[in-house]
């Protein structure tokens, strides 16, 4: 295996951006990530993005995103219709093959252009589920309900997660929701999607993020404190929601095992928990101990630009390693209803 490190990261978020089109949104983060990498744009061997055409409402709109990436003379390029954390995985594989030594990964999504919760419905079974139009939030609430029925998780547990996330988000300039608040206060607010409250649900967020990764021989030259990818894996659960045990996340557990996450020892874990109970499921699946700080950025409950939010989890862990604040962290990304697909990435400093 080649040692590969994250060497730069940039992100941008907004609540409802009507000023800029996707290209104008992506350009600054790509520019910043490339500048921060210390590698000239055309010396970066591979370019790959993650996005969802349904977010922008047109076929192949991801191709237009390339206008922001500086793609001429023609670059080696790919795309995943997934959160860009999966694009990072493909880029890591490309470096492992020896084909390239570095890669630019970017993800973008303007979730506010349409009803994002209806868009996610279209990921469900098109014959027996989608025609009923359960939203992404409805399906997550079913998972929370199943978890409550087991008896180990209470409303207060969710409120504690939500309150800590909102407080931590106060220190994150990219969070779109933040608040100095405690669990009791949140418990006093109405249940909006039983058993969930609005504070348990990630905010609709527009945003983009970009990361540059490089093999050791490049990373050492250009980055004082790279964050080495010590393990990365992604797994998927059955698409049929009923057939899954919704009170655990088997695919997260498996991805964690394969990535080497279960030995623990993480200073920080950035979990792509789009709902408060997701965090509880993910912590249990990954066996995270009390020593690990969970989502110090505020996590997806602070800002959740779809298709970039998982990549941002990796970027947030990188940022802390790069600043010398922490030595070892775990990043997680998810996609699909009720934590269907999960990616785990372990990052370490020198």
């Amino acid at each position: 295996m080649r040692d590969v490190a994250v060497i730069s990261f940039a992100q941008e978020t907004a609540v409802k951006d009507r000023e800029r089109n996707e290209v104008e949104f992506i350009s600054p983060v790509v520019r910043d990530a490339v500048a921060g990498s210390g590698i000239a744009r055309h010396d970066i061997g591979f370019t790959i993005s993650g996005s969802c055409d349904y977010l922008s409402g047109g076929p192949f709109t991801f191709v237009q995103g390339l206008d922001a990436a500086g793609a001429w003379p023609p670059v080696k390029e790919s795309h995943v219709e997934m959160d860009a954390a999966w694009a990072l995985y493909e880029a890591w594989v490309a470096i492992q093959t020896g084909d390239v030594d570095s890669a630019l990964i970017y993800g973008f999504g303007k979730s506010s252009l349409t009803d994002i919760h209806e868009v996610i419905t279209l990921q469900t079974d098109p014959y027996t589920v989608a025609p009923l139009w359960p939203s992404m939030v409805d399906l997550a609430a079913l998972q929370a309900s199943a978890l409550f029925a087991e008896g180990d998780v209470t409303e207060r547990d969710l409120a504690e997660v939500a309150a800590r996330s909102r407080r931590d988000a106060c220190a994150n300039p990219f969070a779109v929701v933040s608040e100095e608040v405690d669990a009791d206060t949140l418990l006093g607010r109405p249940v909006t999607h039983a058993p969930l409250r609005d504070s348990d649900i990630a905010p609709v967020t527009d945003g983009a993020a970009a990361i540059v990764i490089a093999a050791a021989e490049v990373a050492h030259d250009v980055c004082a404190r790279p964050a080495w990818i010590r393990g990365i894996d992604h797994r998927v659960d059955a698409p049929h929601i009923g057939v899954r045990d919704l009170t655990t996340s088997a695919s997260t557990r498996r991805a964690g095992e394969e990535a080497g996450a279960l030995q623990g020892g993480f200073d920080v874990a950035e979990l792509h928990a789009q709902f408060s109970h997701d965090e509880l499921l993910l912590r249990a699946a990954l066996g995270l101990s009390a020593e690990t700080a969970i989502n110090p950025s505020g996590g997806a409950l602070g800002a959740n630009p779809l298709m970039a939010s998982g990549l941002i989890r990796i970027g947030e862990v990188f940022r802390r390693i790069n600043a010398g604040e922490i030595g070892r962290g775990l990043a997680h990304a998810t996609q699909g209803p009720c934590l269907q697909q999960n990616l785990v990435c372990i990052l370490e400093g020198e």
Binding site: R18, E19, E24, G57, L113, V119
Partner: peptide
């Protein structure tokens, strides 16, 4: 699906 498409600045 209904969208609010914005052209962007340029």
């Amino acid at each position: 699906l209904e969208y609010e498409i914005n052209a962007g600045r340029a």
